[in-house]
Amino acid sequence: MDRGQGTKKRTLELASIATAIVIWEIVARIIDIKYILPSFTSVVSAFIGLVQDGELYRDIMTSLNYFVLGIGLAILVGIPIGTMMGWFKSIDRAVDPIIEMIRPIPPLAWIPFAILWFGLNKYAAGFVIFVGAVFPILINTYTGFKNTPKVLVESGKVLGCVKNKDIILRIALPSALPSIATGIRVGMGVGWMCVVAAEIFGVSTYGIGRKIWFWNDLHHMDMVLTYMLVLGMIALIIDRAFRYLVQVWWLKWQSGVVV
């Protein structure tokens, strides 16, 4: 029964994707100007070519390198600051105005300073991704800590967990984890979007975003579209993998809560 439902759902999903592809191909053939809308078949053959000569692999690894750098830093900075702000009222009051002033600035606006501070290298790209990812992580960590149920903190105190450090690490942190996981997930989404922008200014000859601009400069719109789809697919894979890991390893104690 359950399995039957699943198969049916899967069939519907595949049918929907197949329909979209067929329509895309038909539209592309009707328009028949390859730089206006490259056809599905041309994108597939471009994709196969890129996989075969290993170019795509190198691009993906380059972009992931920036991404890991940016997200890693965002986690290292966002969680501790979010924790401090969520737990200590005075720190919240002191830091919050600064955060609220910087937060609305679009990450891409940091590109000029990223270049000046870090140079044209992966750290500049990582920094732009960091700026995109850090605030969702910070804010969600903050919310998670702030919403730690009082009864859990008091239970802990009664059970001998009285030092601030112990309460934070053993009670507030695990209690905030679902919220932190949401923050990381949102942060990774925003961070990945910054990858394309971070690569415009050309810190390397490789990278998915870089290749979008490279082929755009050469008007190879089939390549541009191929890299765009790769960008989307990787975002999807990262998101699904993270959700899976979180549910299986990290937050299996949660009942039916979708991060």
Binding site: V151, E154, S155, P174, S175, Q254
Partner: peptide
């Protein structure tokens, strides 16, 4: 102490 609300640590 046993609280009125459910006070078990849900992650344990």
């Amino acid at each position: 102490m046993v609280f009125q609300e459910y006070s078990l640590f849900p992650w344990r």
